[in-house]
Simulated scan of single mutants.
Amino acid sequence: MSENDASLAQVFQRAETLFLDIQKSSLSSTSEEFQSKVNESIRGFERSGIMVRQLSLFSENEFMEDISTKDLRFLLTEYYLGELFLKRVSKDRLADLTISKEHFDHFLLQCETHDILTAQDKKYLEQITTDAPRDAATRRGEKIARFKREKEMRNQIEEFNKVLGTTSSGYEGELSSEIEDQYRDFVLLHLQYAIFQTMEQLVGIQQEIPMLKQIQERKAAEGSGDSRIAGRANEDTRDARVDDSRIWNATGPLMDPNGRPLRPFVITNKRAEMMAGVFRPGHSLPTMTIEEYLHQEMERGNFLSGGTEEPKKKEPDDNDEEAINAETIKARNWDDFKDDNPKGWGNKGGRIG
């Protein structure tokens, strides 16, 4: 059977099998064999995406319950493409990251449209998109919780693989009513795991893209600077070359009639330098007044204002017998302590004999 005659399920299954092999591969990510599998899997999922759109499998008006069990797994197409473009090694890393982000965004949009995103997923997605400030303890707790959740989902997927006898998201046998319920839960678990991985990958992409853009801008600036320097050097060599035989002529003129230097010289004002050295004080002069310094420190928050008065002691209510008894006991304990520990008792330096 040729590729053009293959069904959507066959094309998707072939691309997914390649993707799972890549995930478990021990090959170097830069090797030709590894990259060949990555590109072949990309072509398979891109063809799957085209077939999904041609068949109009998913409608914006459908919720998760409205999508057939056999069709649910094809929602993973955009997720797999996002992962594969991250694994692709090319000359333009920034372009691959941009394409990967577009596929991930499309996948999350599909999941939200069909009501697959959970409230927890939406909350975390809002946090990473708005970059809301959180303290270190909160971030650490969230990271531990998400790690546990990822591990739990992986274990559940492995259990489903054993029960259904499959290694991918597909099921080749007939779907009885019992098997269909299990398989549907299995595919939904795959989607939840893909949503989890997508949001984790988006965090890394959002951090890497600005760095790559800065590198490109720096290279572009260096390239334009190099071209200007090269042009200026050629012009100097061609039009303004100094005669080596006259450059150390200390008695000749500094410049020729065209303004070109004939010998090295430094423009200085010796008289001003000498005056500055002779008449300056022997100590460093202040750069600001005391008032300016205090005003600056107050703006920085290094001086505290107020709070110098001792807080007034709260007198217990005459009708509150418990508070009065507590104050009485406290005073007696303090008197007993002073009787047992006279002033200066622990000061050995002050003891004589």
Rank of each mutant, 00 (worst) to 15 (best):
K314A: 07
C111S: 03
F19G: 08
D21M: 12
G231I: 06
A119Q: 15
E112I: 09
T251E: 08
D5K: 09
N258T: 11
A326K: 13
M153I: 12
P311N: 11
R134D: 06
N325E: 11
G307E: 00
V187K: 01
P311S: 12
F196N: 03
N258F: 13
P281N: 04
H190D: 05
A276Q: 09
F58T: 01
T69D: 00
F34G: 07
D340C: 14
T130M: 14
E208K: 01
E321K: 13
F147V: 14
M211L: 13
T287H: 06
A272I: 05
L75I: 07
D105L: 08
G141A: 13
L117I: 02
L18Q: 09
A194C: 04
E126D: 14
E174G: 12
G82F: 03
H103W: 04
N234T: 08
L262G: 03
D92N: 12
I67A: 09
R246Q: 12
N269R: 02
E83N: 12
S28D: 10
L262Q: 08
A323F: 04
K87P: 03
L27G: 06
G252T: 03
N347E: 10
G277H: 06
G353T: 11
D66P: 05
W248R: 08
A220L: 08
L57M: 04
V242R: 11
K101Y: 03
H114K: 08
F104P: 00
T268H: 06
L108M: 01
S168H: 10
D336R: 12
T268D: 09
D340S: 15
Q35K: 10
R238K: 08
E65S: 12
T113G: 04
E321A: 10
E315W: 09
E292Y: 07
G82K: 00
V38L: 00
K330S: 08
G259E: 05
N4E: 14
K148H: 07
N61V: 11
P286G: 03
R154P: 01
Q216N: 05
S224H: 09
A194M: 05
Y193V: 14
N269E: 02
H106T: 08
T166R: 11
D226M: 07
R280P: 02
V52R: 02
R271I: 09
C111I: 00
H114M: 01
N333A: 09
E40L: 07
K87R: 09
A250L: 14
T69L: 00
L20V: 11
K219P: 02
K312L: 06
G82P: 07
L254M: 11
G350D: 13
R218G: 01
S48F: 07
P342S: 15
M288L: 06
F186T: 10
D339T: 15
G225N: 07
G282Q: 05
A137P: 06
S48N: 07
E310Y: 10
N61H: 10
S169P: 12
E40F: 05
E309S: 15
D318K: 10
D121P: 00
Y171E: 00
R218N: 02
R154Y: 08
T77W: 05
E65Q: 10
P257V: 10
Q192D: 06
S168A: 10
N325Q: 13
D320K: 12
K313I: 13
Q182H: 14
S25Q: 03
D340K: 15
M51P: 06
D336Q: 11
F303R: 11
T30I: 14
Q110P: 02
D335E: 15
Q197K: 12
D317C: 09
L262K: 01
L86C: 14
D336T: 15
